[in-house]
Design a protein around this nucleic acid. Structure first.
Length: 586
DNA sequence: GCCGTTTTCGGCCCGACTGTTTTCAGTCG
């Protein structure tokens, strides 16, 4: 049973206990733990296998820890089954409809004998729901709306689609509104979540009407959902909602902090503040005894007031970062400027758009000391994969480009297909001529778990394979990715010294943050690669650095943070000893 | 049910929003 499934059980327990009239704080405890588990960057099943104490997670004590163990090992929980049997079957699903909480669900059941989503829809259509006290036509309509939205539900947008849309809006506002001073993205986008719900913007301006009017009139705004003197929500043609808030300059920091979230982070922050006799809200920090409000123009000052180091948005998930900030033990995590090279880049020799010269020059422009050109192997016919003969002629071309451009080490590489049986698309004698070999899965994605796991492990055992590319092979919003025993793969990667790639291609973002965190724990060497097929895509790195940060990744976990000489030393070491080589450098 | 620089008992984050009310209940984040 995975974390979201466990979280759903606890959410259900909370709802049913509330219907039963259980003590509020018991209910809150279950709700809290459901949210925590849903956001947990490591699988509970894994923690249990490792013998870790779940009680170390905030919000989990003796009772819930025991319930989790039972759920994860047995796949069900007696306590929940018992509780559930006291209620009609459909009531849990009914409570998942936005606008229907435990109180409403209970009233529907008691007063209308409505106990399923289908009956709920019926009760709205025949008017019986609206006739209940404290219910009405509008309430009925909004629930009906939620039911329709539920059916048409599209998932949140991958960050790579939301970010450019947000940036276009930010850029247009900056250009067209001279009255804007500060303007920032907040919300899940600023925290670099993989997928985004709404785009939240915060700004300061001496001309509110101009800002709000400009936003409403942007060419890709299809309609204004909501607007008042200091805020507006608009729908973009991309299907995204933008929420803009204008605040006083003195409160910009407080507002940005509040609107960045996450909700869980803000909750923990507030608890921390309360312990100091203070209270945080979107306007600033108040001292409840005197009622005075202190405003903050910067987030840094706000955190400092609470005795905390500045916490980067990517870390604000409400899981240990506030304790770490209090004791100055936040990770010194990897930054974009730490990256010294890119180890997965395509040219027009295979399916890239741009020439070798352009790609190498582009890498140099970005300040890199080395770049691996990793065109596809012959088996990727669709990607114009290189036969061993073409690969050989590319080698000499590559040396010429390296000499002509100068100041950057160009590694001769390949993205070689891992075939269905785990063998590679080039024979060993060809692989041996290469500096950097990224082995990737592009076909046979539906293989059963065990076959897939063995296939990848076999590839990692090849001494010429330096790295595994986009391991899960997922495509955000399109394709789920392979089924495999990632734990076993990480263990083998650590043993064999095979680097695992954090693929920054916005469609992939692969590995995901929780997998990165686990791989690091097991001592796997990681690389952050752009997988660029055009010069502009060399800038992909921003997403992955940010998401690696969400996994508390530090520079010494990432091989392409090594300066050129150290990186070449790393490569010269026998594969199984490379992990030590990286650690020795740190 | 969780948790502890004062606590093994007695506290526990809170404001916004919506629709319903005539002072507030329920839901959400």
């Amino acid at each position: 049973m995975n974390n979201p499934q466990v979280a759903e059980v606890f959410q259900g327990i909370a709802g049913l206990l509330e219907i039963k009239g259980e003590q509020r704080f018991t209910v809150v405890a279950y709700q809290r733990v459901a949210r925590t588990i849903d956001k947990l960057p490591i699988e509970l099943a894994q923690m249990l296998r490792d013998g870790q104490d779940l009680k170390a997670i905030p919000g989990i004590g003796k009772a819930i820890s025991r319930k989790i163990s039972e759920l994860v090992s047995a796949g069900k929980l007696d306590f929940f089954e018992q509780l559930r049997s006291e209620f009609p079957d459909g009531i849990l699903e009914m409570m998942r409809v936005p606008g229907i909480g435990p109180k409403t669900a209970k009233r529907l059941w008691d007063e209308l004998e409505v106990t399923s989503v289908a009956q709920l829809e019926g009760a709205i259509l025949n008017g019986s729901l609206a006739s209940l006290p404290r219910m009405g036509a509008k309430k009925a309509e909004s629930i009906l709306h939620a039911l329709a939205a539920r059916e048409a539900r599209t998932d949140r947008l991958p960050i790579a689609r939301a970010m450019p849309a947000a940036e276009r809006v930010v850029e247009a506002l900056r250009e067209q509104c001279p009255g804007i001073d500060k303007l920032a993205v907040a919300g899940s986008l600023r925290r670099y979540e993989e997928t985004i719900g709404d785009i939240n913007l915060v700004c300061t301006s001496n001309n509110h009407a101009d800002v709000l009017g400009t936003l409403a009139a942007l060419p890709n705004v299809t309609r204004v959902l909501d607007s008042d003197d200091t805020s507006a929500s608009v729908m973009l043609s991309e299907g995204l909602v933008v929420k803009l808030r204008i605040v006083e300059d003195a409160r910009f920091g407080s507002a940005l902090q509040h609107l960045t979230g996450s909700h869980r982070h803000n909750g923990v922050l507030q608890e921390h503040a309360v312990r100091m006799g203070l209270s945080v809200n979107e306007h600033g920090i108040t001292e409840p005894s005197s009622g005075t409000l202190e405003e903050y123009a910067s987030e840094k000052a706000l955190y400092a007031k609470l005795g905390l180091e500045y916490i980067a948005p990517e870390l604000r998930i409400g899981l240990g970062e506030i304790d770490a900030a209090e004791t100055s033990s936040l990770p010194r995590f990897v930054e974009l400027k730490d990256l010294r090279g890119d180890l997965h880049v395509h040219s027009d020799w295979s399916d890239g758009r741009d020439s070798l010269e352009l790609m190498v020059a582009g890498a140099k422009e970005r300040g890199y000391g080395y770049v691996a050109i990793t065109d596809h192997s012959a088996g990727r016919a669709i990607a114009n994969g290189l036969t061993p003969e073409r690969l050989e002629s590319r080698q000499s071309k590559l040396r010429r480009v390296e000499a002509a451009i100068g100041g950057i080490k160009v590694l001769s590489g390949s993205e070689v297909d891992i075939r269905a049986d785990g063998s590679l698309d080039y024979p060993d004698d060809v692989l041996a001529t290469l500096d950097w070999v990224v082995a990737s899965i592009h076909s046979g994605l539906g293989q059963p778990r065990d076959t897939m796991t063995e296939r990848i492990i076999r590839a990692m055992q090849n001494p010429h394979v330096t790295a595994i590319g986009h391991l899960s092979a997922r495509m955000l919003g399109e394709r789920k990715g392979i089924d495999a025993d990632f734990e076993a793969i990480f263990v083998t990667a650590a043993e064999t010294g095979t680097v695992l790639e954090i693929n920054a291609s916005p469609e992939r973002l692969d590995l995901r943050d929780s997998h990165i965190r686990r791989a690091i724990d097991l001592g796997v060497v990681m690389a952050i690669d752009s997988d660029a097929h055009t010069v502009e895509r060399l800038d992909n790195q921003r997403y992955r650095v940010a998401i690696a940060r969400r996994a508390w990744c530090e520079a010494h976990h990432i091989v392409n943070t090594l300066p050129t000489d150290a990186f070449m030393d790393f490569l010269s070491v026998e594969k199984s000893r490379r992990r030590e080589a990286l650690q020795a450098y740190a």
